[in-house]
């Protein structure tokens, strides 16, 4: 059997499943990243305003990251509301894992803005909101995006591990492949997941460069 033939056979056999699971996978990653941004950006900004809170907030986010992912999925199963089985606990777990890089980079990005620039802005009579939106966030954007990029790539990998709690996604192909010792099935899950991770990494890298204006 030559290569093109085996590829077309592979696509015939797994194409539909790959498309469906890729969709689920992207949904898991997209939704949890959205939630992580919704939570992480304001938290990151908040702790630049209330420095006393920065240690506890970053500490909690840090601890979250050190919990092994399988264990976190396990913890979530008995929890009411957020936990259980299916997509919801998977999204909760992915969101929690993505928080640290987003909070930390938002915080360090803003704190890294030249104090002279911040002082000039305040001295000119900018309100805190104007300073944040016109100066601090634009200048921190590269660092913030780097955090989002890391979080996203991690989430793509983690989403594949969420399959055993019924989250769907490309992990379904991988786990079933492992169970029935079917290497092709494992690859049908692994290759698209890797391509998604690489694609998002390159995409965010490009955005990061583009938005970090030449200064």
């Amino acid at each position: 059997m030559n290569l093109p033939q085996s590829v077309s056979q592979f696509v015939n056999q797994y194409g539909a499943e790959i498309v469906r699971h890729t969709g689920e996978h992207l949904f898991l990653v997209g939704l949890s990243m959205g939630l992580a941004l919704l939570l992480g950006l304001p938290l990151g900004i908040l702790i630049t305003r209330k420095p006393r809170w920065s240690k506890p907030v970053l500490g909690v986010a840090n601890v979250m990251q050190t919990i092994p992912s399988l264990a976190l999925f396990g913890f979530l199963i008995p929890l009411p509301l957020l936990g259980g089985i299916g997509t919801r606990p998977a999204i909760v777990a992915l969101t929690l894992y993505s928080l640290l890089p987003i909070i930390r980079n938002t915080y360090t990005g803003i704190m890294g803005v030249d104090p002279a620039v911040r002082e000039a802005g305040r001295g000119m009579g900018m309100t805190d909101w104007q300073l944040l939106s016109q100066v601090e966030i634009p200048l921190a954007l590269g660092v913030i995006l780097a955090g989002v990029r890391v979080a996203t790539v991690i989430a793509v990998g983690l989403a594949a591990i969420a399959s055993p709690i019924g989250a769907g996604g490309l992990g379904d192909l991988i786990y079933r492949g492992i169970a029935v010792l079917d290497n092709q099935r494992i690859l049908a899950g692994t290759i698209p997941a890797a391509l998604i991770a690489i694609g998002l990494d390159v995409g965010f890298g490009w955005l990061e460069k583009k938005l970090t204006i030449n200064h």
Partner: peptide, 21 residues
Amino acid sequence: NPIQLRRRIGYVIQDIGLFPH
């Protein structure tokens, strides 16, 4: 009001502090 006060006072800071972007 600190904002109004500062807008009435031009301020050249020691480290210049121009906005790089």
